[in-house]
Design a protein around this nucleic acid. Structure first.
Length: 858
DNA sequence: ACCTATCTGATGGCTG
DNA sequence: CAGCCATCAGAT
């Protein structure tokens, strides 16, 4: 039976089956709320107690277990968890309950002979009344809806008049059209399109069973799948327009999305343009899938794990649940009930090993090896699984594999269920990989095999993480820690063996090792030796029955540069898996700001340029880099910069009220992170702010200090010194210090904000003239930062009415402009915004505005 | 509502 | 005010 969709509530379960001829058949079932008890735990008394209940619908023996099924979830919950003040009667007698939290749909998919069908997919976007704030989105009238599919199907709906009747008609037509599909994708759909469509449909009493469609949030899908981003540019914004720009190179539509109501109300051309805009967004979704294939890959994962391909199915815990519950059921094994974890009793366990980078400078000829599928291979070799772990240690004569660091013992007489699962996944992956090689590359059959192979790999690799997750049914920190620490041990043993042969491990992270001091041939031989002799011996010594540990010679760096820390480096290849690098091979970049979406564009581009000169041009003279740094420095401090180059973007990672409000020692509240302060303001102004929202802001040098302001609509000044000293230069400085540790990358570069000398002696480029009757402060326009203004204010306060300000500028044409203005009472002054407060007349103000614009240097 | 290790920046407190 | 440390947060 191929299942397209299934949903359940307390009363009924609805299942939509895809028949072999493609038609959809709807079934209604009673939902099953069940749990399993071990046969040996069920005394006659307990059986009588449970079967006496009128809410019990069935109980039957299944292997070593008895399944009890209940009419309602409430009855099941009461037995499992108890009630406030009432301990669960099963807990009281110490009987363990299995799979007691499994919901009816999962139960059905696991127990029945089901497959996940390939749903007919469509992409949807809606436009709603822009006058309604996001927080009340359900009250916003839907103005238009567009749905499209991958093969040219297109459905457009435009609201003809502003009435409930018209909206209801439009919605009815939309749902009617949607009958041709099973799965709906919308960008940010879980937070906007899906709830709005639901609210408007119900509010207008349009009769349709919305549960019939799989809802998949395209944004959530994209975030999960886009794990191989090239640079931070792809991570800075998750707005559809920004992602489309990155992936499809498509520019922005000139339609103003915040004016949908005005556009609709104007009618005619204008209304049509809104629909065009609506349709274009849907086109982007279609194209994005054509380009990335993320949806197809997710479908393959869903099929492997027997999860429905909707937003819930994206979660790794769901995927492992789907795969393992099915496997267990086939083998008569039942899993424990998920426990409800209180906050605060989180456990931690030790993770991977990272070797401190051992060398500095431009390091040549570094060979890199890594363990193939390290964590799955460890779990397989040691037969690690929650139920093979011997909680009391090994019994006498018992055959066990022992994890070398945790000393945990795993029974190796029979296969653990996790071992069975991993073996299956890995062998299926192999099968599909070999099928792939038999197909001509790029054909649909090849692509299908490729996706299947990737899906099996993704699922196998996610199991370790789920075992380490406290919210998972398979959580076992001892197993998880045995996995990670065995990885540590393997890497360290490998380093030791390399050292014995005169090779130096200069770096390593989790499953990789960077080695210097040998030829390719020697390294190849070393890797082969570890696989033939070292690991089989190590595994055997620990009691493993099988050895799946495998080291691979992955690549050689022709040059490699660390940016002064672990997990941060760049380098160019000599070869990758034996394939010689060419002049246009891309450098490998890890952890650097270049790759981060929360760095400013200026920092990314700057660092990218330096990486290029280091890795592709292979320049080794620090003086050449110094020149580039000076160039960029002048541009940042004095050039014309566009806003996108200096905005900072950071995500909100939890509900705004959960950010800790610390107190300073004097009891006053401490400042919250800048992006959170702005996020709160935005939310108060009706903007959409939730977990995952990216907040874009600019740092400005206000008269009350440096502060962050929202980038939305911001056109004002920004703090160039802050930008250079804190955000732009340090990332590149660290990289250059890594490449040329003996060169001084600080003097004249790191600290650029001008300061006033305390003795009143002016610094270079500034003149502080003190007259006898009158004080004149002469400053450069570009240095009208906080320090200067404070200095002037202090002076003005001491000598009221006696301070005059001299401002001079040099225009692009080299013309010098100079003016004097009485300081008077300085209101909150900031050179550009508050120039009005500095100058005598409006004419003078305009003069400065113009002069400032044309300025190249001061 | 998949893990840990690690880095970096903002902020605040302390010290010389 | 620089230098150091601690804490929180975000990102890889």
């Amino acid at each position: 039976m191929r299942i397209v969709q299934a949903t359940a509530d307390d009363r009924e379960m609805n299942v939509w089956e895809q028949l072999p001829d493609g038609r959809i058949q709807h079934h209604r079932h009673a939902p099953e709320f069940s749990f399993f008890l071990r046969k040996k735990d069920v005394t006659e008394e307990l059986r009588r107690f449970l079967t006496r209940s009128s809410l019990l619908t069935a109980h039957r023996e299944e292997g070593d277990f008895i399944r009890f099924s209940w009419k309602e979830d409430a009855a099941r919950k009461l037995l499992i968890y108890g009630r406030r003040g009432v301990e669960s009667p099963l807990k009281e007698v110490g009987v363990e309950i299995f799979e007691g939290d499994v919901r009816p749909v999962r139960r059905f998919l696991v127990d029945k002979d089901c497959e996940i069908a390939r749903p007919r997919r469509c992409y949807v976007d809606i436009e709603t009344d822009s006058r309604v704030p996001f927080s009340r989105k359900e009250e916003a009238r839907i103005l238009s809806i567009v749905a499209k599919d991958d093969v040219g199907g297109r459905h457009r709906f435009l609201l003809p008049e502003d009435s409930n009747r018209a909206e209801a008609d439009m919605l009815a037509q939309y749902w009617e059209a949607l009958g041709a599909y099973d799965q709906v994708l919308a960008w940010n759909g879980d937070r906007f399109d899906f709830p709005v469509l639901k609210a408007r449909t119900e509010g207008n009493r349009v009769r349709v069973q919305m549960a019939r469609w799989l809802q998949l949030d395209h944004l959530a899908l994209f975030k999960r799948m886009n794990t191989a981003a090239e640079s931070g540019d792809e991570k800075q914004s998750m707005a559809l327009q920004a992602i489309a720009m990155q992936f499809l190179g498509e520019g922005k539509d000139d339609f103003d999305a915040s004016k949908t109501w005005e556009a609709w109300e104007a009618g005619g051309e204008s209304r049509a343009r809104m629909l065009e805009y609506n349709e274009k967004d849907v086109d982007l979704l279609v194209k994005l899938e054509a380009k990335t294939g993320f949806c197809d890959l997710f479908q393959a994962i869903a099929e492997v794990c027997r999860v429905l391909p909707d937003s819930i199915g994206l979660l790794p815990t769901q995927q492992m649940d789907g795969f393992m519950l099915r496997l267990g059921a086939q083998r008569g094994l039942r899993f424990r009930t998920k426990i409800r974890r209180e906050e605060g009793d989180e456990e931690t366990f030790e993770g991977a090993f990272v070797l401190e980078p051992k060398e500095k400078g431009i390091i040549k000829n570094v060979h890199v090896c890594d363990f193939a599928g390290m964590y799955p291979s460890i779990m397989l070799s040691w037969n690690m699984s929650p139920e093979t772990r011997l909680k009391m240690g090994a019994g006498k004569g018992q055959k066990v594999a022992q994890a070398p660091v945790t000393r945990e013992c795993f029974d190796v007489e029979g296969e653990g269920i996790l071992t069975v699962a991993l073996r299956q996944l890995i062998s299926m992956r192999k099968e599909w990989t070999s099928k792939k090689t038999k197909e001509p590359p790029g054909t649909p059959a090849w692509k299908d095999a490729d996706r299947k192979s990737t899906a099996y790999k993704v699922v196998a690799n996610s199991f370790y993480g789920v075992v380490g997750s406290q919210s998972s049914r398979f959580y076992d920190s001892s197993v998880a820690e045995s996995v990670t620490t065995t990885g540590r041990w393997l890497i360290q043993r490998t380093i030791q063996e390399a050292a014995k042969r005169g090779m130096i491990a200069i770096y390593g992270d989790t499953d990789s090792l960077f080695v210097r001091g040998c030829s390719r041939e020697e390294f190849r031989e070393f890797v082969a030796w570890t696989n033939e002799e070292l690991y089989p011996k190590l595994a055997q010594e620990q009691g493993c029955v099988e050895n799946h540990i495998k080291l691979e010679y992955e690549k050689e760096f022709e040059r490699l540069i660390f940016a002064g820390a672990k997990k941060r480096y760049c380098g160019s290849y000599a070869h990758f898996k034996g394939a010689e690098a060419t002049a246009d091979s891309k450098p490998e970049i890890k952890g650097l700001e270049y790759k981060r979406g929360d760095s400013v564009v200026l920092a990314r581009r700057f660092q990218g340029r330096i990486i290029d000169i280091l890795c592709k041009q292979k320049e080794e003279r620090p003086s050449v880099f110094r020149e580039v740094v000076e160039q960029v420095k002048s541009r940042v401090l004095q050039g014309n910069l566009e806003r996108f180059e200096y905005v900072i973007s950071k995500s909100v990672s939890k509900p705004l009220n959960e950010y800790v409000q610390k107190k300073k020692l004097d009891g006053s509240p401490a400042a919250q992170p800048p992006h959170i302060v702005i996020a709160k303001q935005l939310k108060a102004d009706g903007h959409e702010v939730h977990e995952g929202t990216k907040i874009e802001y600019v740092v400005v040098d206000g008269e009350d200090g440096i502060k962050a302001v929202s980038a939305i609509g911001y056109e004002g000044d920004f703090d160039r010194y802050y930008l250079w000293e804190n955000l732009v230069y340090p990332p590149t400085q660290r990289l250059l210090e890594g490449a040329f540790p003996d060169y001084d990358w600080t003097v004249g570069l790191a600290s650029v904000r001008p300061k006033f000398s305390k003795r009143g002696k002016p610094l270079k480029g500034q003149a502080l003239l003190l007259g006898s009757e009158e004080y004149v402060v002469e400053v450069d326009a570009f240095e009208m930062g906080r320090g200067v203004i404070e200095q002037i204010r202090t002076l003005a306060t001491k000598h009221p009415g006696q301070v005059r300000l001299v401002i001079q500028l040099t225009t692009e044409t080299g013309e010098r402009i100079r003016t004097e203005t009485p300081y008077g009472v300085l209101p909150n002054v900031k050179f550009r915004d508050d120039l009005r407060g500095l100058v005598a007349s409006a004419a003078e103000y305009r003069f400065f505005e113009e002069a400032y614009k044309g300025c190249v240097s001061s």
